[in-house]
Computed example of a mutant assay.
Amino acid sequence: MEPVTVWWAARDAARPGLAGLLDPVERGRRERYLREADRDRFLLGAAISRLAAGARLGVPPEHVPITRACADCDEPHGPPAIAGGPHLSVSHSGDLVAVAVSPYGPLGVDVEEDAGRIGEDVARLLLAPGEGPGGLPAFWTRKEALLKATRDGLRVPLADLRVSGPAEAPRLLSWEGRPDLPGRMAMRTLAPRAGYAACLALLDHPADVPVEERSAEALLAAVSGQQA
């Protein structure tokens, strides 16, 4: 069975030459970020998405037909999508960028730097009754990954979702108003470097689908070699 792949990159892998892979919409979105760190993270997410999807489709990365239409307003600031697949999800936090790619169905990936940034105010919005209070990064990444997989984003309150605790394997226990989703969703804990939590959510995937985590270094190095 073909695996779902999660590609990891550190922010220092961003190189200006990667911008040549982006389409005009992506280049414009990148330039609108005020902070260099944000520009780097967006560049890596977009470039890795194109490289990984292009390899699956057999087309050059700059020709991958990625769209980014927002579900609310149709403006091009939504998550990346390819009609007919493969399915994509991108996340970044701190110095890490994750890109998940699946040939099977919708998915969501989320990574969070465990730097004490989830305070009590956020916790009140994040936790459902019976959840917490410990392990907030795990609860956050699990719920964010689920909301990305369904493409609901933060239009759905995080407390509407109940997930297993940090000491357990990730699992969706319930979703208010969506009793079908726990049976359709698989979840995997990912292994970013120390100081980060990460999770992958897979909607309507084959049972026991393999998940591979890989460094994006070889993908990015191939681009650098072509431009050298």
Results as ranks from 00 to 15, higher is better:
Arg11Ala: 10
Val223Asp: 06
Ala138Gly: 07
Asp110Val: 08
Asp40Glu: 15
Glu217His: 11
Pro133Asp: 09
Asp40Leu: 15
Leu96Asn: 03
Asp114Met: 13
Ala83Val: 14
Ala71Lys: 14
Glu36Arg: 13
Glu112Thr: 00
Ala46Leu: 06
Ala191Glu: 14
Leu57Met: 15
Val109Asp: 12
Trp140Ser: 08
Pro182Gly: 02
Glu62Met: 13
Ala216Trp: 11
Tyr104Leu: 00
Pro106Thr: 02
Pro76Glu: 03
Val6Arg: 01
Ala98Gln: 01
Pro157Trp: 11
Leu190Asn: 02
Ala98Ile: 05
Leu146Met: 05
Ser89Leu: 02
Ala10Leu: 11
Pro166Met: 05
Lys148Gly: 00
Leu43Tyr: 02
Asp152Gln: 15
Ala46His: 10
Pro129Val: 05
Gly153Arg: 01
Pro166Gly: 04
Gly130Cys: 00
Ala197Asn: 02
Ala83Asp: 14
Pro3Gln: 00
Leu22Gln: 09
Glu217Thr: 13
Lys148Met: 00
Glu62Trp: 13
Pro182Ala: 07
Ala53Tyr: 03
Pro103Phe: 05
Gln227Leu: 15
Gly183Leu: 10
Glu112Ile: 10
Pro61Leu: 11
Gly177Asp: 07
Tyr33Leu: 06
Leu51Trp: 02
Arg15Ala: 15
Pro133Phe: 11
Arg41Met: 09
Asp95Pro: 02
Glu31Trp: 08
Ser89Cys: 04
Ala218Phe: 07
Leu126Gln: 04
Ala46Ile: 06
Ala197Tyr: 08
Ala145Gly: 01
Ala159Tyr: 13
Pro3Asn: 04
Val99Gly: 00
Gly177Thr: 05
Tyr196Glu: 10
Gly116Ala: 04
Leu34Lys: 11
Glu36His: 07
Val209Tyr: 05
Ala198Thr: 00
Tyr104Ser: 11
Ala83Glu: 15
Glu168Leu: 10
Val90Arg: 04
Gly177Phe: 03
Asp160Arg: 14
Asp95Gly: 10
Ser215Cys: 09
Thr189Met: 06
